[in-house]
């Protein structure tokens, strides 16, 4: 009983109360703040950009994540161990460092091959490609970490059986492997989406925070807050929190199905 109270109080102080206050502040004047925020073109543009960057990043991370998972679990090759360590790197490295690293490599003025790319017409830093890159990097391990254990658990006998029955590599993947890992993939996608929507540090450095052009929702929250437009900041923050909670609800609905 005491333990339960401690846990509830701890989580209440740390999570529930602050997030609750964001909601309370957003709705202090009824839905006015939310309506005002959603009629501010800067906020709307930022939300739309956030969704675009997040969706593109999630698609890339899903395709790449499933591919890397198959490589890690189903193949033996030199450097496999190193690859699996590298994949966890984004979890331990600060997003700010990621942002700086991308600027160092792709920066249009003095990056490694940023100037070359820009001469070719592709601007990476302070533009959408860099923001996608940064978001992909920070959310990279999430799909892989969900899919790898499931792939290990199901083993490769079903895949071998399908091959003896005449299936090609692609048919084996589409008809046997993918259905077997589908819930892990969905779970990984939802987590990646939540992470991508909420990314701040890496994107702030890479995007240049240009209003209406490279400013995402999290960057708008910071800017509005500092510009004393607290109600707009809270309303936008509420939308981000709402999206995250929605993701968690989807995940918790999916979770029990994994067992069956």
């Amino acid at each position: 009983m005491v333990k339960r109270v401690i846990v509830v109080v701890y989580l209440g102080l740390l999570v529930l109360w602050p997030v609750g206050l964001v909601v309370a502040n957003s709705f202090a004047d009824g839905a006015d703040a939310l309506v005002a925020a959603l009629s501010d073109p800067v906020v709307v543009n930022a939300l739309w950009l956030t969704v675009q960057v997040a969706v593109v990043s999630v698609v890339i991370n899903t395709v790449f994540g499933i591919g890397v998972s198959l490589l890690l679990v189903r193949h033996r090759f030199p450097g496999r161990w190193l690859l699996s360590v590298l994949i966890d790197l984004p979890l331990s490295v600060s997003p700010v460092v990621v942002g700086l690293a991308i600027v160092l490599v792709y920066g249009g003025v003095d990056g490694w091959f940023g100037p070359t790319l820009e001469a070719g017409g592709l601007q990476v830093v302070f533009a959408a490609p860099g923001m996608v890159m940064a978001t992909v990097f920070v959310a990279l391990p999430l799909v892989i970490r969900e899919v790898v254990p499931v792939l290990r658990e199901i083993g490769d006998e079903q895949e071998q059986a399908a091959r003896t029955l005449g299936a090609t590599g692609w048919q084996v993947f589409a008809r046997i492997t993918l259905p077997a890992i589908r819930w892990a993939v969905v779970y990984g996608v939802v987590l990646s989406l939540a992470r991508s929507l909420g990314e701040f540090g890496a994107v702030k450095i890479v995007s240049g925070n240009l209003i209406n052009r490279t400013q995402t929702a999290t960057l708008v929250v910071e800017q509005k807050y500092q510009d004393f437009e607290q109600t707009t900041a809270y309303a936008t923050a509420f939308l981000l929190a709402f999206a995250a909670v929605l993701c968690l609800v989807v995940v918790s609905v999916i979770r029990p199905k994994e067992g069956s």
């Binding site: 006998e157 079903q158 071998q160 059986a161 399908a162 091959r163 003896t164 029955l165 005449g166 299936a167 090609t168 046997i176």
Partner: peptide, 16 residues
């Protein structure tokens, strides 16, 4: 494998 025309039965069934 897929061109060998063999039927293979696994110890642990390998049921889909």
């Amino acid at each position: 494998v897929r061109e060998r025309d063999v039927g293979f039965v696994f110890q642990h069934y390998a049921a889909f």
